[in-house]
Write a protein that binds this DNA or RNA. Structure first.
Length: 153
DNA sequence: GCCAACGTTGGC
DNA sequence: GCCAACGTTGGC
């Protein structure tokens, strides 16, 4: 089983929204590196941290599970959708998504500022300068380190 | 294939 | 709101 971190802006869709709906298609990813992970690597029952970006306290807000492995992102085919991409065709899809399922909501968001302070996480892509990847893999060690901390707060 | 211009991300 | 960092686009 693999571990991931996936970013979303809580003003658009946050951990409380996922808790409410239970399962959600993680659509709208328009980055090739992230696309490759969605399409080729993420497996059902993999776990992912839900990261809140572009908000007052950016950080990890909870845990979700991959509920359905990669399939073509239908929003790319819909000319009326904000995520429409005319270069993605149903017969040759450019963009993919997975469905995610709610697992847990942390009682407190684990702030990015705390993550940055941990020597154990120094090579986590999230805390590296200029990182903009909206989906990234986590090592077992990183996952368990963060998860242990989450259990304590 | 290079690279300048432009758009987006996302912390602060 | 600012701006650094990065990805993408398109002219050449």
């Amino acid at each position: 089983m693999a571990y991931w971190l996936m970013k979303s802006e809580p003003d658009v869709f946050g951990i409380d929204d996922l808790k409410r709906v239970g399962i959600e298609p993680w659509d709208g990813v328009r980055n090739y590196q992230a696309r490759n992970m969605l399409r080729d690597q993420m497996q059902v029952d993999d776990l992912a941290f839900f990261y809140h970006s572009n908000c007052k306290i950016p950080g990890i807000a909870g845990i979700m599970a991959i509920h359905r492995a990669g399939y073509p992102d239908p929003t790319a085919f819909d000319s009326k959708h904000p995520y429409y991409d005319p270069k993605s065709k149903p017969e040759n899809p450019r963009w993919y998504l997975v469905d995610v399922a709610f697992v847990a909501r942390f009682s407190e968001v684990i702030p990015l500022s705390w993550l940055k302070d941990q020597p154990e996480l120094a090579d986590l892509p999230l805390v590296r300068r200029g990182n903009r990847l909206s989906i990234m893999p986590l090592s077992d060690a990183h996952w368990h380190f963060i998860n242990r901390h989450a259990q304590r707060v």
